[in-house]
Amino acid sequence: MRIVQEFTKGLWNELPPFRLVLGLCPVLAVTTAAKNGLGMGLATTFVLICSNTLVSMMRNIIPSKVRIAAFIVIIATFVVAVELLMQAYVYSLYQQLGIFIPLIVVNCIILGRAEAFASKNSVMLSIADGLGMGLGFTASLTLLGGIRELIGTGQLFGFSVMSAHYEPFAFMVKAPGAFICLGILLAVMNYISMQSKA
């Protein structure tokens, strides 16, 4: 049952951007639309699962003094692979995410999970951890992107959903809108978890 626990913790208790407040650079930068958030989240999830698996498999071989260097090489390899695959198969998404794909390498969630979890646990648990964290990250980015897209442009996943009279509040898709939206979501989540504890 531990495997279920490791999977679900990434979905709420340790939800990366909101509970751990990790990896905020892509969270703020790419979430101008729900689709971008989803794409970035899935790319990160893929890298996270692959790197967690490999790090966990090699945890007894890698000497602890060079572990960070080894983890970074492993992570960077998967990131370059994702970048090539996205260029080859989903070029329009690649054009939109642009610089943020190579920057997955320095996303602290990925190195954080390799260091804090995968290097100490078995392969199955590490995959569950990576999948949970990745899906939590994807859901957070999609939610944030969806809210900003809805308020900022009146659309959702590129489809108009607001009535024709709706005046888009373009501030939300700009950088300050990302901070404000993230802050409000953090407050809401803190409130919900305080309520459930009380």
Binding site: I61, V66, V73, I74, A76, T77
Partner: peptide, 21 residues
Amino acid sequence: KMFIVLTVICCVSGVSLSILK
């Protein structure tokens, strides 16, 4: 050991990426 492990990881990474590219 550090030397060997890091070298092997980097080589495997380089070879697989060049194949993928």
